[in-house]
Amino acid sequence: MLGVALIDLLAEPELAFLPLLTLGPTFASVSGSVRRTALVGAVALAICVPLAYNNGSLLKWQNNLTIVTIIGITVASMMASHLRLRRERELASVRLVAEAAQRVLLRPVPRRAGDLRVALSYTSAAAEAQIGGDLYEVVTTPHGVRLLIGDVQGNGLAAVETAAWVLGAFREAAYDEPDLADIGERLEVSLARHLDGEQFVTAIVAEVHDGEISLVNFGHPAPLLIRPDGEITTVDLPEHGLPLGLGALGTGAVKAHRTPFGSGDRLLFFTDGVIEARNSVGAFYPLADRARLLGREEPQAALDALRADLVAHVGGPLLDDAAMLLLHRQDA
């Protein structure tokens, strides 16, 4: 508004710049309160009157129209500011609910479980929520340390209900069932009662033993194994099950597969939102090549560096939920 006033003073009297004073209350409504917007409108009127007097147009119809316009724009901007503030309060409430839901559904994983150090990274594709269709859990049971990572078909809050069913069933079965394949059966039975149509959940259920780890894969991307010497391999299992929810189409139960997991090894579990993330030219994120970032001493710092690299590769918000779970077996 000061710029408009200065231009009006320097310009010819017949040039009308005073209507531009309406920009003041208009922009004030974008970030200011209702009271501040009204104050900016009053300042615009206070500037308009002396400038109109200086131009000799104080009582002319053009200036009267400008004053009415400033008043009208100020009132409209006050209403817009009120609606914006109400929307911000509603959004803040939604975020609080989302955070509470995240604490209940996706509880913080333990940073240490037995001789394991655990790191987690989770990024939701829903801009207004911190939870989505990816799920994870790490529990210490009488049978050992067991974990789950999965990906519900779809993303955002619409997938949260399905994720809740999977997590609830796993937390019960992980303590009750002595065999990993039986945990998968429990998850399948639970989902069969709640999923509709062709919905499904890809998942990996794992159990850590002395010097090895057992895994059952239900159509989920295979994890990466990082050896202490920097060698990176994909843990491809000889047998994969169908995604959870599609078990009726399969031929039978899937057996657990054991793979060496010794001192100093790191195992990265992830969802397809990581490897399917594309940059501006459509190239997928090269996770196997970037996994060298996981060589840092502190597992969480290593995983944070990998997540930052993923976000930099995409160059903007992710289009799908992305979860990563890193296990580090400490040196004896």
Rank of each mutant, 00 (worst) to 15 (best):
R86D: 14
G72A: 15
L242F: 13
V189K: 14
Q130G: 05
V311K: 12
F27I: 12
E231H: 14
E276P: 02
V68S: 14
R86K: 13
E239R: 15
T233Y: 05
L310D: 04
L319D: 05
L326T: 12
L268M: 06
L242G: 02
V205G: 02
P260S: 03
E298H: 11
T123P: 00
I226K: 00
L45I: 13
N54L: 15
L310T: 10
P238M: 05
L58A: 13
Q102G: 06
P178M: 10
T162L: 05
G245L: 05
R307P: 00
A76N: 09
V254F: 00
G114E: 08
L135M: 15
D151P: 02
A323L: 13
N64M: 14
L91R: 08
F269E: 03
G114D: 07
S263V: 04
I67E: 12
L303G: 02
L237Y: 05
I226P: 01
N63W: 00
L2H: 12
L10A: 12
G168H: 03
V138A: 10
Y122R: 06
N55D: 14
V314L: 10
L135C: 11
G264Y: 11
Q199R: 14
E128V: 09
G32T: 01
E177I: 02
L96E: 15
G282W: 06
F17N: 02
H143G: 10
L215H: 02
G32D: 07
T233R: 14
L6I: 08
G72H: 07
L244H: 02
E297G: 10
G245C: 09
T251M: 04
H209V: 01
T66Q: 03
G316S: 12
D331E: 15
L325N: 08
V235P: 00
P110G: 00
D8R: 09
L135I: 11
L268I: 08
V152C: 02
V314A: 15
E90N: 13
A44Y: 00
Y285C: 08
A206W: 05
L2G: 02
R36L: 12
G144D: 05
G133M: 00
A248N: 04
V201P: 01
R95I: 13
K60R: 13
L96V: 14
R266V: 04
P142D: 04
S124I: 06
Q102V: 02
L59H: 14
A113E: 03
A332W: 04
L65G: 11
V34Y: 09
L91G: 06
E128I: 10
G197S: 13
A291F: 13
